[in-house]
Amino acid sequence: MLRIENLIKIYKDIRALDGLNLEVKEGQIYGFLGPNGAGKTTTILSILGMIFPQKGRIEVLGEEVFNGKFDEEKLIKVKYMIGYMPEDATLWDFLTPMQTLDIIGEAFKMSKAERQKRSEELLKLVGLWDVKDKKVGKLSKGMRQRLLLAQALINDPELLILDEPMSGLDPKGIAEFKELIRQFNKEGKTVFFSSHILAHVEEICDTVGVIVKGKLRAQDSLDNIKKEFLRRAGHTILIETNKPIHIDLEGVKVEVIGTNKYRIITSKDVREELHDLIAVQNAKILTMQIKEPSLEEIFLKMIE
């Protein structure tokens, strides 16, 4: 559905994209996570041909739109099948939601009747039917975000690209938004959306890509990312004993964090060996706790 290979974009002396590789498969909800300034928007705008990367390859919906330079014809062709919702755009204040969708529909060469029908459907779907004749400039931030989503859906796209779609929304708005994305995905459509907030992608994404300083740090399901993180970073075991002990196990890092309190970092589960070792030293374990990192911690660790 979407494949990016070795994409490089340099702004003056900043490497915004530093050999980015990623792949989004058909029917996925792909969460593109990364801190501010990691290169998320640059990636999205490159896919849409609005930013000119220096190197790399971009394939969208089976068409190679960029390979060192953009293929304008292919780009226009795939844009008929893409929906894009930018971060924090204002739309045209002087138009009403109905007029906005109508004029966007015109860009896709939809007939008047098609535009009318689709606009009605979408305004009802995003809950803007009651304000369809109100000027966009007078709508609330949440309403405008929903209209931005509606305009991205006007052409019933195969691939929906959303750039920080939930920024500025209240919790209720976020929940509604997530539900809309799920509904869209149920129809077999692919969603690619960026966020710098893990909670926004956690519940709905089946695959996550983490971008840091223009490079993809990880790309997998959240469960697999967590497992991989644990494999690399190791388990953390906190123990407290009744007297001082000496731990000497292969591949185990020990930190003393208090009186008879130890933090053990290990790449495998060493609880049994620990029991034996402590018993040999005639000591007793008072408490033992395996500490698993939260996704938030994994994410923060990754972007460090």
């Binding site: 705008l45 844009k79 755009a89 860009a107």
Partner: peptide
């Protein structure tokens, strides 16, 4: 500044 160029050019408009 208001993001409308990105909306416009994400459509099939050159």
């Amino acid at each position: 500044e208001n993001g409308t160029v990105q909306i416009s050019l994400s459509k099939p408009v050159n």
